[in-house]
Amino acid sequence: MVDSAYGPLSPFAAMPASAGTGEGVVAGEREGLGIARITARNRQLAALEQLVHKRLHLALPAGPRRMRSGDLAAAGVGPECWLMTCESAGNAFAAGLRDSIGGHAAVVDLSDAYVMLRLAGARVREALAKLVPVDLHERSFQVDDVAQTVAEHMAVTLWRLEDTGRGEAAFELSVGRSFAQSLYRAVHDSAAEFGFVFETR
């Protein structure tokens, strides 16, 4: 039974949707993702890799990289530890993963633990440079590179997407849900001089 009144709410609904002039940085919320943290059980790494490859057709990356396969992706976030995402799957994703690979890995549902912003635009790197102490130069931080770092005292996870159709860089930036409004404010202020637009569907 799914009650329509029992629904998720975006923490960004009341935030200013734009700043400055132009579209140097365009943001949007990634909603509905299924997110699960998987950690290999002791001495089960090889078995887990094989199983994930067999059942999910995904090669688990060894370092801070992201591997994608269809709607699925796995981002390395620590030794023998990944953040897996699945489009539109919500909380059901982790439950399914637990059934599928739970023998070899601890699977923890984090679909609600993060809010994720997609950031793109001609000036997105300049705006992010005000937030994260990580080198995002295209040679240093390539498509599907992953960084866990800090932005204004908030733990954030960042990965690079394929450039947009207009050849502009694009990233996904996530933070603990309780920090959503603080992160939004920080992104908004950093991007304002380049023109900031938050797109809602």
Partner: peptide, 12 residues
């Protein structure tokens, strides 16, 4: 960091 690469000490 052996996993993340070179980072500022303030992350630690």
């Amino acid at each position: 960091c052996p996993f993340c690469g070179e980072r500022d000490h303030s992350e630690f």
